[in-house]
Write a protein that binds this DNA or RNA. Structure first.
Lengths: 163, 163
DNA sequence: GGTTCCCTACTCGGATAGAGTCTGTCCGAGTGTGCCAGG
DNA sequence: CCTGGCACACTCGGACAGACTCTATCCGAGTAGGGAACC
């Protein structure tokens, strides 16, 4: 049970886009900033577009940019967009199957499975923590030099066309 | 990012073993209780054995049983035993790579990545919640009829040899 | 010189292979029990 | 009747395929800008 690598990429990209605060930024440039697969990063950004976090503009001078303000984008938004909204723990109700479930009254299953409830409680704590932090919080927590360095690096690679 | 199905199986088995409170219970009998693959359930139980949650005794009248008391087994123990102790979010430090990392001073990376810190905080909330609940808590939360029903079902299938 | 048209280059977007992990299966090693033969 | 040995059946444990998702890649559709030709 590991999270996809795209989550890390997506978060770094959102943070970078917030710092740059420019017009459209090509996904290829973002990939060059972090030295990751340009095409696969593009796939991840597509999911963020579909989720309404980014907006993309085609053609020359095109790229992606944030739709909302950084303080209105939570980590949970990004995680859900990239990993799906499925629960970590999915209860398949095995308590109702086999010999254990065969001899049970239907009324007993009116209550949700205690195991599922317990796992769900833990998962809600995780989601709550994710929903409580925004891209703006990440910007505030990072050292101030990071923003300038990102802008400098981007300006440098933005000069070379079609890199 | 979904948890393996074995977690659900393992938790139900631990709960069942706690309710039965007998000597060794064959894994095949546990599989029959929930109508799951006997061989794969065996594989999951092996992991619980290696983690020190269960103990297994071979031979006739053998099987698995809980090592510790139900109040000393947390959900986190079971999850870690079955899913590994890897973190949900693994930081690969892409901030140090590519154009963004090339022009940075090494001192800047002394601080841990803010994204990793934020994700780790959420994950710790999840783990803390998991570690705060035990098998005994699940027993207390379940309706009292569940324990009797499990015992009845087990006694019934325990009669048939080698099922 | 101004305007219109076309062409090129660049961008995203979805369809297409490869790798790793999860799920499921099989067979062998080890052990306790029950039976049988001998005393 | 009691005791010792033996064979069997049952259990776990690790080695072996299939399926699915994640990762990575390629190519096509669409668009804006720039240049050339024409008025």
């Amino acid at each position: 049970m590991r999270m996809g690598e795209g989550v890390e990429w997506g978060l770094h990209c959102c943070l970078t886009l917030a710092w740059l605060d420019k017009g459209p930024v090509p996904s290829a440039k973002l990939a060059a900033l972090f030295d990751v697969s340009p095409t696969y990063l593009n796939k991840c950004l597509q999911r963020l577009v579909r989720a309404g976090i980014l907006i993309s503009t085609p053609g020359p001078r095109g790229g992606v940019q944030l739709v909302r303000a950084p303080e209105d984008i939570t980590l949970m938004d990004v995680v859900v967009a990239l990993e799906g909204r499925d629960a970590l723990f999915s209860c398949t109700e095995i308590r109702q199957q086999g010999a254990a479930g065969a001899e049970a009254s239907a009324r007993e299953f009116a209550h949700p499975c205690g195991i599922a409830t317990a796992m769900r409680r833990a998962e809600l704590a995780w989601r709550r923590e994710l929903a409580g932090q925004t891209i703006a919080d990440l910007m505030a927590a990072a050292p101030t030099s990071s923003a300038r360095r990102i802008r400098n690096s981007y300006d440098r690679i933005a000069a070379c066309p079609a890199r």
